[in-house]
Simulated assay, not measured.
Amino acid sequence: MLLVIDNIHVTLKGLIEDLKFDMKYWNDFDKIAVVSDKTSVEIVMRLSSVLPKLDMKHFTLSKVTDATSWLNE
Rank of each mutant, 00 (worst) to 15 (best):
D30H: 13
I43K: 11
L61Q: 11
S36L: 14
D37A: 05
K63H: 03
I43N: 05
S48Y: 07
F59S: 05
T39H: 14
E17M: 10
S69E: 00
L15E: 15
K13A: 09
V50W: 10
K38S: 06
A33I: 13
T60Y: 08
V34W: 10
D18E: 12
K53A: 05
T68G: 01
M45A: 12
H9N: 14
K53F: 03
S69F: 00
I43T: 05
H9V: 02
D18R: 11
E42A: 11
K53T: 09
S40A: 04
K38T: 04
K57Y: 01
G14V: 01
K57R: 15
A33R: 09
D37P: 00
A67E: 00
I5Q: 03
K53W: 01
V64I: 15
E42Q: 09
T11H: 02
L71Y: 03
T11S: 15
L47R: 02
S62H: 09
R46W: 12
V34H: 08
D22V: 10
A67M: 00
S62I: 10
K57H: 09
Y25C: 14
I5S: 01
W26G: 02
I16E: 14
D28I: 03
L3I: 10
M45C: 12
A67R: 00
K53V: 08
I16P: 06
P52G: 08
G14H: 06
K63E: 12
I32N: 15
V35F: 07
I8W: 07
F59V: 06
L47Y: 09
